[in-house]
Simulated assay, not measured.
Amino acid sequence: MQSTREIKRRISSVENTQKITRAMEMVAAAKLRRAQDRLERARPYEDAMRKSILRVINQLHGESHPLMEKNDTGEPCYLIVAADRGLCGGYNVNVVREANEHMEKEGVSSPRIISVGKRVRDFYKKRNYEVVSEYLDMPDNPTIEEAKKIAEPAMELFFNGEINELIIVYNEFQNALTQVPVARKLLPMEKDVIITEKDTEEELDIEEQLYAFEPSIEAILGEFLERYVENIVLLALLESKTSEHGARMTAMGNATNNADEMIEDLTKTYNRARQASITQEILEIVNGAEALE
């Protein structure tokens, strides 16, 4: 059995660790509240922009845009958004698994990778994937400027024919306990890519609506599509950051609770060891007294 000194040292170590996990849980909870507020403001904007693009596309009569056209050159590219740090449960593992499963399902053997976060970069570089660009130390409050830095080079790769598809993979925030990894096709921006399961038949039945476009429908469509790609990247960054804070809060909360259980078990062990030590001392005193008699 361990000595009482060793057990007390272990209890002290677990208590110190618990202080850290509890502090991290509180910090993550505070960040989560702010991130949720930003995410709730961003989602309606993306939805309204998507429906506006649908209205423009429904007025096209043979016209198109390079972002909507398929090409047979280049390889698929995966824009994968995860965290720079760990200690957030299965957050990083789940998004990488989702990307790998999508590659396997689509039969993609040599994709190009755009990584957001150190964990994604390290994972794919160790496995000799082609990481064409990496974006590290993303702020807790991503802005459209960060989204543009990621989206514009990706669109340039598509324009130049270096990639033939762009798939964005990230964790979609449901609640603090649930973050769902999703793989979403971003380019080429075909109509079925823009339509989602949430669209009703009434919302899609807009063929008869007529609009006057100035300067031209092609110019407006091009501007819309580029802004929309940037907006989806921004939304993915916000979803990922919110999911990261939720996952870290949950993971640190579980770690704090586990530390409580460990302290309780160690305290019981300490009391048993102390009781055994006292009993042994009493026996030694009694035996000594009997020997003197």
Rank of each mutant, 00 (worst) to 15 (best):
R127F: 00
D122Y: 01
F158E: 06
E98H: 04
L87D: 14
V182A: 04
I114A: 12
A176D: 10
T178F: 03
I206H: 05
A83S: 15
E207K: 14
I113M: 12
S115A: 15
K105H: 10
D84C: 09
L186K: 02
D122N: 12
P76E: 06
L187F: 00
A176V: 11
Y91I: 00
R119T: 13
I114L: 14
K125E: 14
Y124Q: 04
G107T: 09
Y170R: 01
E101C: 05
L186N: 02
V120M: 09
E106S: 08
L187Y: 01
K148E: 15
E134D: 14
E190L: 08
G86S: 11
R85W: 03
P111K: 12
K191M: 14
M189L: 15
G90F: 02
L157A: 13
N128K: 11
S115D: 07
S115E: 10
V120W: 01
R85F: 08
M68W: 05
D122A: 11
F123G: 01
N164H: 14
K191G: 06
V132P: 02
R97K: 14
T143N: 05
R119V: 08
D205A: 14
N94V: 04
C77K: 01
F159K: 15
N92H: 05
N128S: 08
K118I: 07
L166N: 03
E207L: 10
E104R: 15
E145F: 08
I80F: 00
D137Q: 14
I194D: 02
K185R: 13
L204T: 06
N94T: 12
D199Q: 06
N71V: 09
E172H: 11
P181D: 12
K70F: 03
G74S: 06
A99V: 05
N94E: 15
D122G: 11
D84H: 07
V81Q: 04
P153R: 09
H102Q: 14
V81G: 00
M155C: 09
C88I: 03
A183N: 06
D84F: 04
V95M: 11
P188S: 09
E190S: 13
K191Q: 15
G74N: 02
T73F: 00
